[in-house]
Nucleic acid binder design. Structure first.
Lengths: 195, 195
DNA sequence: GTCTATAGCTAGATAGAC
DNA sequence: GTCTATCTAGCTATAGAC
């Protein structure tokens, strides 16, 4: 309970990776840039990790934990409320607090086919999110809140839209933000059963 | 009309960039790898372009042209048919013909916030696609085929889902492919006005 | 555990012959 | 226009002092 700020070294490095990734992007990420976001030296990184990829994997584990907690912390049993809260979290725009993680994950995701080390942690992260969304939708159908859609397909489509909105948004700028929000809200509206 | 195979050098290099990008990913893309997909030497690349970024920008222009043509070639006036054809094209899975372009664009898209040179061409490409989708939806509403949704929001959401499905899919493997297809088909079904 | 220094390598880009 | 050879910078990772 004493990890208020001085977290352990590995967690600090995971944070440094997140910061460096958000600022420079994966393609330009270097251990020197990670060290620049880390209070200690570049060589110090290698005391805690064997390689740069190891540091990135540590960040992914941290990100998976944070996203999982965020989704788990939604404090309601109502499927519609839960789904809307999950969307708020997944569609969070760059610039809003916590969005750096999405941009960073998105970068790594697009590089996953070419990097075996990152593929595992990324699959874990995406699968967990997908499962949570599927559960929410399935619950909603069972309770009669949602129409009897295909839960897997709905969750996959929604998560794809969330992942895509991050990249799409950073490329085009803020002016699509409102459209994207209107888009997912309308999608969720369409799931709700007509009473 | 003699450009059947021996296209001009710049087009050949754009193709080499596409191939190298698909195989190695943006983060590991080097001029040596581009040259490996190019019939001539690495130094030859620099006779036609000033920098590696220039070569990538040339690929993006080529990709924009190809995607634009693909969408323009949809040979019908029926908005529903056009939208479904556009989705077939945008949601094309890795492995299917022509999908390499989507993966490559997706990689570059995620790096756009950190690279000014690529941002312009990418914005052009995504804006053009967005505009086409918006038009199709707006036409459909006007003709009474689609419900009176927000065309901009619908197009943005759909394009985000398409962009995301590429990255999402390559990270998780083929088993979400069917869910993603079911997802976008259900979404389009939901747009069609009840007669 | 953390540092400075640096080894060893590979990248992007250029020089100059042909 | 295309080549081979190479320059210089910047990268990952390690050595060895403290």
């Amino acid at each position: 309970m004493t990890d208020s700020v001085p977290a352990d070294a590995e967690a600090e490095i995971a944070q440094a990776v997140r910061a460096a990734l958000a600022e420079h992007g994966y393609a330009r990420l270097t251990t020197a840039k990670i060290a620049a976001e880390y209070p200690k030296s570049e060589a110090g990184l290698y005391y805690h990790f064997d390689s740069k990829d190891g540091m990135i994997a540590a960040f992914l584990e941290f990100a998976a934990g944070q996203l999982g907690e965020e989704l788990a912390d939604i404090d309601t049993d109502d499927p519609e409320t839960r789904l809307r809260a999950a969307c708020e979290s997944l569609f969070r725009l760059p610039g809003e607090e916590g969005a750096g993680v999405h941009v960073a994950v998105m970068e790594l995701l697009s590089h996953a086919p070419h990097n075996e080390t990152l593929r595992g942690p990324l699959q874990t992260l995406e699968s967990a999110t997908l499962e949570t969304l599927t559960e929410i939708v399935a619950d909603g159908i069972e309770q009669g809140t949602f129409r009897p859609v295909d839960p897997e397909a709905t969750a996959a489509f929604l998560l794809a839209a969330a992942d895509g909105s991050t990249g799409f948004h950073v490329a085009l700028g803020m002016d699509v933000g409102a459209d994207l929000r209107a888009g997912w809200e309308a999608y969720v509206d369409g799931l709700v059963a007509d009473t």
